[in-house]
Structures are given as C-alpha cells and as structure tokens.
C-alpha cells in the first residue's frame, strides 16, 4: 500500500486536491482511502464518501491534531492494509503552524494556497519545509505575477520540494500530481519510522486543562515574552508574580 501524508493550513484546498487526485487513481482501478484528522469537527468525510473514497476520521478534541495524528498513524496504516487499499492518504490541518505530520520515507505533501499571502510560506514552518511535494492551489483567481512571486517564496523555504500548481475545483494539475502518488514507496508499517520534525514540547499547565490566567497557575514549560517592563512589575495580577 502506498501512503501519502497531506498537510497544509485550513481551507488551503487539501480535501479538494485529494479528491481530484484520487479520482485518477480510482479510474485506473485502484482502491483508495483517506484518514482525516481534525480538532473538533469536520464534514470532509462526507465529501470523500460521496466520491467513492473509503474514509475514517479522527477528532483530536483537546489535543493538537498533529500529536493525535502521530499517536494513531500506525493504526491507520493497519486499517488501510486491512481494507485492502492501494493508496492511503492522511489529511491533517496544520493548525498550530509548528507541528508537521510528515514521516521519513513516507511521501509528504503540503498544500498551500495563493490567497494566503506571501508571508505564509515563511510562517507555516515544518509542514512546508519538510514536504517532498508542495502543491499550490487557487492560481485561478490571482494574477500570473502573484503566482510567480508566491512560488518563489515557497521555493525559498523549501528548495528541494517538487512544486506543482493544482486547481482544486477544475482538477487542473491533479493528473500530474497523481503520477507522483503512484511512485510513492510501498508502506507495510510505519512502526519505528521517524517523524521528519520533532513535535514541540507542549507540557505547560494549559496543555493539561488549566484555564486560569496568571503566573501562579503556570507550571512546566513556560516562557515569557520580553516586553521591557520595569523591574518589579508584576506580569499579571497574581500576588508575588514577578521574579
């Protein structure tokens, strides 16, 4: 089974691109499936199902969806094998812009759109930097100049990736992308494989459910922003907060 991890900012066109690309593989008689990761809600699964794609979804709830993804990815691969899939795709929205679901030796795709602004490639970090293939969408609504500038910015962040333009609505470019998926490595397990980029240390009290604000309630991995406050200034209302 070939396995592809797809990441990208929310609404960049991941679902649209996956559906259009899988269509070509379906036409060639392949059995395709998707595991969709999100935080609280998604109805992408309905869209996939409507297009004849077998789908499972995982909602991370209180966890970072990428952390949740890594904790579950081996199970997903085993599910895909059990369903007899030829191609399994995972979709996850990089919400914290710090995590990246990409795994070594597994084809890694990042979807990013022309409308997101030229600062975005720099901002979204590992999910773009660690990708093998970068797909740029929504080229149909911006000018040629903006497409070229945006592609150049993407290239500056990830010089090695293969860069493709795909239109998520008409499917232009999706056949070309599907040929890269066909070449992906055969994956029987991801057990023991490594993430391309380590997940951030998320071990503060808020990770554990704290809701109150103030240094008294902050434990573990806490870092303060440097605002040049006068010494002795209490960084919050809690008594004795300043060090």
């Amino acid at each position: 089974m070939r396995f592809v991890t797809v990441s990208g900012p929310p609404s960049s066109g991941k679902t649209a691109v996956i559906i259009k690309t899988l269509e070509h593989l379906q036409k060639a008689g392949q059995k395709v499936g998707v595991v969709k990761f999100d935080c609280l809600f998604t109805d992408d699964d309905e869209l996939f199902r409507k297009n004849g794609i077998i789908v499972r979804k995982g909602l991370a709830g209180a966890l970072c969806p990428d952390h949740y993804f890594v904790s579950n990815v081996e199970e997903c691969v085993q599910w895909g094998l059990q369903e007899g899939l030829d191609v399994l795709v995972s979709e996850s929205a990089g919400l914290c812009n710090r995590c990246s679901p990409h795994i070594r030796e597994v084809l890694a795709l990042c979807v990013i759109d022309n409308l997101s602004g030229i600062g975005t490639p720099k901002k979204i970090g590992p999910m773009l930097k660690a990708a093998d293939v970068v797909v740029i969408t929504k080229g149909d609504i911006v000018s040629q100049a903006e497409r070229e500038v945006f592609a150049a910015r993407v290239h500056m962040v990830n010089t090695k990736a293969r860069l493709l333009h795909v239109n998520g609505i008409t499917g232009q470019g999706s056949f070309e992308l599907s040929t890269l998926w066909t070449e992906a490595e055969d994956t029987a397990t991801v057990e023991g494989k490594k993430l391309r980029f380590s997940m951030p240390a998320a071990l503060c009290s808020y990770c554990l459910g704290e809701t109150r604000i103030g240094s008294d309630y902050q434990m573990g991995n806490v870092r303060k922003i440097d605002l040049d406050l006068p010494t002795g200034f209490k960084t919050d209302g809690a008594p004795g907060a300043s060090e």
Partner: peptide, 21 residues
C-alpha cells in the same frame, strides 16, 4: 520544466484573475 518554481512553461491570463496583494 515540471517541478521548479522558475521554469514553468506556461503563464496564464484569464478573466477570473484578480490582484489580491
């Protein structure tokens, strides 16, 4: 010609395109 940002064979001009910057 297929994958780099510098070497795209075709530039496109269409009615739906707008400046967004």
């Amino acid at each position: 010609w297929r994958f780099s940002s510098e070497h795209k064979l075709v530039a496109q001009l269409s009615q739906n395109m707008n400046f967004v910057m």
